[in-house]
């Protein structure tokens, strides 16, 4: 659905993009991760036909962004990292205006606007002025706005930035629903864990270069070669440590804050078997999970090389 080939962008002497290449398949979610100023927004702007690349090619739905911007605009819903709203316009009128910019008839608009407001949980705010909405609500309204013409592709540039945890969760749920609707989504963030759950593929960019692309698991393994298991038991801790150390696919076992942490090198199937084994051995297991916080570390590991 989206192809980017050797894309570069220069602003005077500064090279914002240094020949990035990637593809996003139809119906998949591509998480675009990188620190601030890495080139995420520049790539998004080029895909949104707001900027011409210095060199390279970018296609959306088979159309070249520089040659067929009008056709691309019909296919994309773009939500920039920062966007404003109009004072003195109600939420429903706001969507109505943007729907009219796509030539959607009044009758059609009257049908889709309540559905969109429902999708983003803002039905109760339809008569509220947009400038009175909270930041989270504005982001959700912005998302609804980008969907008014039912685009196949969504370009969401840091949609969760500046949101409180509750608003982030609400936004993530809406995005999951959009993914289930078959939309092709490129979503950017500077926080890897934020996109890990949502994305089929993650691309990590730094200083205008694509550092790595793959699904979260692949990236994890590529960098650390293992994942870390976090186990808590009511008692028999020492016995459990010995049990784990005996496994060939466990590299090291540590104790930290009442948890047992194990560096795990095996496959998912072996992980299932291990849990079954521990249960059968009657270990009083309270927790058995993968350590998620390591994603932050992965991100730092990956971006450290290029940045320095």
């Amino acid at each position: 659905m989206i192809q980017i080939e050797g894309l570069t962008k220069r602003f005077g002497k500064m090279e914002a993009l240094k020949g990035i290449t990637f593809e996003v398949e139809k119906g998949s979610v591509f998480g675009f991760v990188g620190p601030n100023g890495a080139g995420k927004s520049t790539t998004m702007s080029i895909l949104a036909t707001l900027m011409a690349p210095t060199s390279g090619k970018a296609y959306v739905g088979g159309y070249d962004v520089t040659k067929d911007p009008k056709k691309i605009r019909k296919q994309i819903g773009y939500m920039p990292d920062f966007f404003g709203v109009y004072d003195n316009l109600k939420a429903e009128e706001y969507l109505n205006f943007y729907a009219s910019t796509y030539g959607i008839s009044q009758a059609e608009r009257m049908k889709i606007i309540p559905q969109l407001l429902e999708l983003v949980n803002l039905s109760h705010k339809k008569d509220s002025y947009v400038d009175t909405l909270s930041r989270g609500m504005k982001q959700r309204l912005g998302l609804a706005r980008s969907l008014v013409h039912n685009p196949e592709v969504l370009l969401l540039d840091e949609p969760a930035s500046g949101l409180d945890p509750r608003a982030r969760i609400e936004l993530r749920e809406i995005l999951k629903e959009l993914r289930s609707m078959g939309k092709t989504i490129i979503i950017s963030s500077h926080i890897l864990p934020e996109l890990a759950e949502l994305s089929d593929v993650i691309g990590i960019i730094e200083e205008g270069q694509m550092v790595t692309i793959g699904n979260v698991d692949q990236i994890y393994r590529q960098l650390q070669g293992h994942k870390q298991l976090k186990i808590a038991v009511l008692d028999r801790e020492h016995e459990l440590i010995q049990h784990l150390k005996a496994k060939t696919y466990i590299q090291g076992v540590y104790q930290e804050n009442g948890y047992i942490l194990a560096d795990y090198l095996g496959q998912d199937e072996e992980q299932i078997k291990l849990l079954q084994e521990l249960v059968q051995a009657n270990f009083p297991i309270l927790t058995f999970s993968e350590v998620e916080g390591n994603l932050e570390q992965i991100f730092l590991e990956i971006t450290r090389g290029v940045g320095s």
Binding site: R73, Y78, T101
Partner: peptide
Amino acid sequence: ERQTLNILLTTNL
């Protein structure tokens, strides 16, 4: 300044 121009430019207007 209101950061609404980019959005307008990506519509069919």
